[in-house]
Design a protein around this nucleic acid. Structure first.
Lengths: 154, 154
DNA sequence: GAGTCTATCGTTAGTAT
DNA sequence: CATACTAACGATAGACT
């Protein structure tokens, strides 16, 4: 055997890559579950892979929805600030994102919005449907919706 | 030393729990990044913890947003089917969810919709921010919002 | 290919600083 | 409280079925 130090580079060989993927995906999920148990924190993972059409989601579909929602519920200014300060973000090409925006704007907008709204509402967890105290969000909606696009166009 | 087998139960002692949390969180993130590198898959993790106000998000804020968006873009009928078929979901108490739904149904429905829509639009990635043509969603909204509760009531 | 098996590597609990 | 250390455990690469 005498296995050498593991290189963390992309595994070119299909069969080896698949094998490693399967093993390590299991390990990752297990580690997540252990951390959740040991420390009673909330965590989730999502993983797309070329072997399955559907993504792997853990620790459960429902919990993932909850965690994602909690994440999204953070105020957008905070999310934006965090994003901008992060090294990982600065590495991404702003040009690439601009392209995406432009491209997307070309598609039929009625269909786009319809789909976005549909998926959004549908994807919601059950527990986020409370709105006590949120009586007039309409101004906020139109105000905040365009903050990011403006930033990108500068 | 002679450390025994690690119990995966909740660590009651605050300091020990925090220490384990910090170590294992690092390990988890590292494992994720390794798997991404080795197999060139798309994955992300989100983790809330009592020590930080903000969640840990990896491999980067932007990538996480992308993966979450991809996840949400799956057609909802598929998501629903997957959710229902998954063992992890069936383990959740349907009764518990039913309770939640019932409870939540009592709140004002207009406010409910307002918040759902707000968070939805707000949380969306850059490419979903166009609103041209968002002229008559009302039929769709009221139709789809209740599909999941109905299913649960059967 | 998908399972097993095991030597070896990598992670981490407990301890020390 | 954080950081460093290191023995022991757990994950897994590669071999084999």
């Amino acid at each position: 055997m005498t296995r050498g130090k593991v290189s963390l580079a992309y595994i070119a060989k299909d069969s080896a890559r698949k094998a490693t993927f399967t093993k390590r995906k299991g390990g990752l999920i297990k580690k997540t579950q252990e951390l959740i148990s040991l420390c009673e924190i909330e965590a989730c993972g999502i993983l797309f892979n070329p072997y399955d059409l559907e993504p792997e989601v853990w620790p459960s579909q429902l919990k993932a929805q909850q965690v994602i929602q909690k994440f999204r519920n953070l105020s957008q200014p905070e999310q934006s600030r965090r994003m901008m300060n992060q090294e990982s973000f600065t590495k991404e090409s702003v040009e690439k994102i601009k392209e995406k925006v432009t491209k997307k704007q070309k598609v039929n907008q009625q269909n786009q919005m319809t789909q976005v709204m549909y998926q959004c509402l549908y994807g919601k967890g059950f527990e986020h449907l409370s709105t006590d105290g949120l009586n007039d969000m309409s101004g906020l909606i139109s105000q905040k919706l365009w903050e990011i696009p403006r930033r990108l166009e500068s």
